[in-house]
Design a binder for these strands. Structure first.
Length: 471
RNA sequence: GCCGGGGUGGCCGAGUGGCGAGGCAGCGGACUGCAGAUCCGCCUCACGGGGGUUCAAAUCCCUCCCCCGGCUCCA
């Protein structure tokens, strides 16, 4: 039974999709005006784990991640650099996609862009005006927060204490937020019933989510800094327009990545981009680091900690490689492996139970460590290949769900080339003969040669194991 | 100020009443042609401060202190 924390209700809830045959999720994607940094990555990885876990549990998942490709900052940058705003947006959109790919974040099914949904946005604004929730004022359109009685239910904020949102003139209440912004000179604009302008920040999410997911769906989320005003405003305009309550069943928010005392943010200028970090550490290690804390917790970025979890990660990879090597042995089982296999089963159960409890990845990873310990002091020394195979299945589950260990699980087919396999075995055996005769030069020549081909060797007590090393 | 989340051993990080999760680092051993990997032991009673409830509290209650986020663009 999968439980997940819902910001809307402030408690963990049993996950049950609105429609039993499909889970619909919408994640607030980036505003593409700068490079994707590891703070973003933490959030997107978290939602990727959620999506993968739901799929692992057998759900069909439809995931939409929006791209905000028009806003003040994009415009500002385009003016600064004297280039079309679309050039800026395209560049950083591409950067975002590359970052996701590196970190093994599965592609969303749809990446809708705000500028490609102006018509849908205008229609919603029109409807909100008709229903009396929004009003036009000198080319701008605002949402009247006083008309929406549930305003503040997500962020638990009292309307009165909200400071004015957006600048803007002719608002009924200072807290009203813009649905449509009148174009200023030199700004890109679209025609609308209220004159030339562009959509406000929040409205695109209502328009695009309803287009692709329907007027009510299961999961919506983003970083915890989006709770207010972004998500609060989305709820207001969507529930007012679609007449569905709750508009979204589960609101999920990810703890921010901190740099020392501040959150990592473009506006603080303390960002480390995904590109930078992955040029220094393998993307898989970065991903493993990002899920080493609970998704709802804030994490203070420390390079030393990344290195420490990276060391732990490597240990698991080594063990998986060794297990693979063991699993292909076809000798007699020394003694019954049933007990060991039962134990692996218990570990797997605890692993999944941890994830069932609000995606407790640190706990789940601890279970993987305990599997690793068990493999190293029980399975491997005993060459228990049936147990090795079962253990590998558990790591493979972890690969599917957590999206780590890609190095050792992808491209399996390629590696199962039988002749290549036999050939390497032959070389390793030959090397063993030389080793037993203490002919180190030949032995090392073979070892170096194999390593240069991406085949790792490890001399154990009475044998040599080997595996294909991924890049 | 208001709303939300936190403060756990050198570091990271689980744990919401009952035998000290797990990892990393460090130290000492074992194994070993080299290398890598691995194993064993040690770091064996840590839970922000102070009160309280209980046979029993990191965990519940009260109180104080500190940190972060939100209340402005933000993942």
């Amino acid at each position: 039974m999968f439980k997940i924390y819902n910001t809307l209700t402030s408690r963990k809830e049993v996950f049950k999709p609105l429609n039993r045959s499909l889970v619909r999720m919408y994640v607030c994607g980036p505003t593409v005006y700068d490079k994707t940094h590891i703070g973003h990555a933490k959030a997107y990885v978290a939602f990727d784990v959620l999506r993968r876990y739901l799929e692992f549990k057998g759900y069909n998942v439809l995931k939409v991640v929006n791209i905000t490709d028009i806003d003040d900052k994009i415009i500002r940058k385009s003016i600064e650099l004297k280039v079309d705003y679309r050039e800026i947006a395209d560049k950083y959109c591409k950067d975002f996609m590359e970052a996701c790919e590196k970190l093994n974040i599965k592609r969303a099914h749809i990446y809708p862009k705000a500028t490609e949904h102006i018509e849908e946005i205008i229609n919603i604004i029109k409807e909100l005006i008709e229903k009396g929730y929004a009003y036009e004022s000198d080319g701008n359109v605002y949402f009247d927060v006083k008309k929406f009685k549930d305003y503040g239910k997500l962020s638990k904020i009292n309307v009165e204490q909200v400071k004015p949102q957006d600048e803007g003139v002719g608002k009924r209440n200072p807290q009203d937020f813009a649905l449509w912004k009148k174009a200023k000179p030199m700004e890109p604009y679209w025609d609308s019933p209220w004159g030339p302008g562009r959509p406000g920040w929040h409205i695109e999410c209502s328009a695009m989510s309803s287009k692709y997911l329907g007027k009510q769906f299961d999961i919506h989320g983003g970083g915890e800094d989006l709770i207010f005003p972004h998500h609060e405003n989305e709820i207001a305009q969507s529930e007012a327009c679609f007449n569905k309550t709750p508009w979204v069943k589960y609101w999920i928010h990810v703890g921010l990545l901190m740099m020392g005392k501040d959150k990592m943010s473009k506006s603080y200028g303390n960002i480390i981009t995904v590109e930078e970090i992955t040029s220094k550490y393998s993307p898989m290690k970065v991903r493993f680091y990002l899920i080493s804390g609970h998704y709802r917790s804030q994490m203070v970025f420390q390079e030393e900690n990344l290195e420490a979890t990276g060391a732990a990660y490597e240990r698991i990879l080594n063990t998986i490689s060794t297990l693979k090597s063991i699993s292909t042995i076809d000798v007699k089982v020394k003694d019954s492996s049933l007990k060991r296999i039962m134990n692996i089963g218990r570990i797997r159960r605890r692993f999944l139970e941890a994830l069932d409890d609000d995606l407790n990845t640190p706990k789940a990873i601890a279970e993987l460590h305990s599997l690793t310990n068990f493999a190293n002091d029980e399975i491997i020394p005993n060459e228990d290949y049936p147990a090795a195979r079962i253990a590998l299945k558990v790591y493979e589950d972890a690969y599917r769900i957590l999206g780590v260990f890609k190095e050792v699980f992808e491209e399996e087919e390629v590696r199962e080339d039988k002749k290549l396999y036999e050939l390497v075995n032959l070389l390793v055996t030959v090397r063993q003969i030389h080793r037993s005769r203490r002919e180190w030069e030949v032995a090392d020549l073979i070892a170096r040669g194999l390593r240069s081909l991406g085949i790792e060797l490890s001399d154990q007590k009475d044998k040599t194991i080997w595996w294909f090393k991924s890049t």
